[in-house]
Write a protein that binds this DNA or RNA. Structure first.
Length: 239
DNA sequence: AAGCTACCCAACCGCCGGCCA
DNA sequence: TTGGCCGGCGGTTGGGTAGCT
């Protein structure tokens, strides 16, 4: 497919792999096993970089690679995992047997990101409703868009992205963050807010929280406070 | 049929962290 | 502690291709 320059300045092959190269690499790895990639080209008789051999094996030649269309189930899982993990494609791929990080990354960049963008632009952020995720993590009585909103807090931590969690004060002055987590988190937050609702730097909670079926524990930090929005980030002390 | 454009995706690049001497 | 090596990862590139005019 891709045909960049055939050789680089080192005289090594670049660009698309030939069937002969695939055969050499597959035969070698099948016989010897994965690993020690820097020595693979020489031992396998390939005029490639070790990294290139590794990539070709992992993304194309490795057994049990699932090729072809991403199913609806896989797509939904990718979206959910991306919300949780951000652009950590290898982790996402680890949850999708037979799929490679490169494939998922490409699928996201070419297809899903556009879908998500379109969807986001049509959704008004709803109020976060009462939810006890620990007792009912997967059947939260909230809208799908607010689930996404919550999950983003985990994603933010995992992926170190800058997207913050916006926690909006409700009309009665009670921060809605109190309503999104498990009871002990609520209680701690309630204690905290007695004295300092918007001035505090962080809230901690001892027990785990469940979001979308995933458990984590830690603290919630106030990153910034502008306008009337409290901008927070969730830390997972287990990571 | 030819030219153009947008999209897809394999492959490369460079950074980073782990390991070891 | 430091420096070099290696593998893993995410971002980016650019050739192939399908669809449109």
């Amino acid at each position: 497919m891709k045909q960049r320059a055939n050789c680089n300045e080192d005289g090594l092959n670049k660009g698309a792999w030939t069937a002969e190269e695939d055969e050499l690499l597959a035969s070698y790895v099948n016989a010897v096993g994965e690993g020690n990639w820097t020595s693979v080209p020489k031992k396998a008789g390939l005029n490639r970089r070790g990294k290139s051999c590794r990539l070709r094996w992992l993304n194309y030649l490795r057994p049990n690679i699932k090729r072809g269309n991403i199913s609806v189930e896989e797509e939904e899982l990718i979206i959910r995992l991306h919300k949780l993990l951000g652009n950590r494609w290898s982790l996402i791929a680890g949850r999708l047997p037979g799929r490679t990080d490169n494939e998922i990354k490409n699928y996201w960049n070419t297809t899903l990101s556009k879908k998500i963008q379109t969807k986001k632009s049509t959704i008004n952020m709803p109020n976060i409703k009462a939810w006890n995720p620990k007792t009912n993590p997967l059947e939260a009585n909230i809208t799908s868009s607010s689930i996404s909103y919550l999950i983003q807090t985990k994603a933010q931590n995992c992926s170190k992205t800058s997207d913050p969690l916006h926690i909006l004060p409700s009309t009665n002055g009670v921060m809605q963050t109190q309503q999104i987590s498990q009871q002990n988190f609520q209680d701690e937050l309630m204690e905290e807010k007695k004295d300092k609702v918007l001035d505090c730097d962080s809230f901690s909670f001892d027990d785990e929280m469940w979001i979308d079926g995933l458990e984590f524990g830690g603290e919630i930090n106030v990153v910034d406070d502008y306008d009337n929005d409290l901008v927070c980030s969730l830390f997972d002390s287990n990571l």
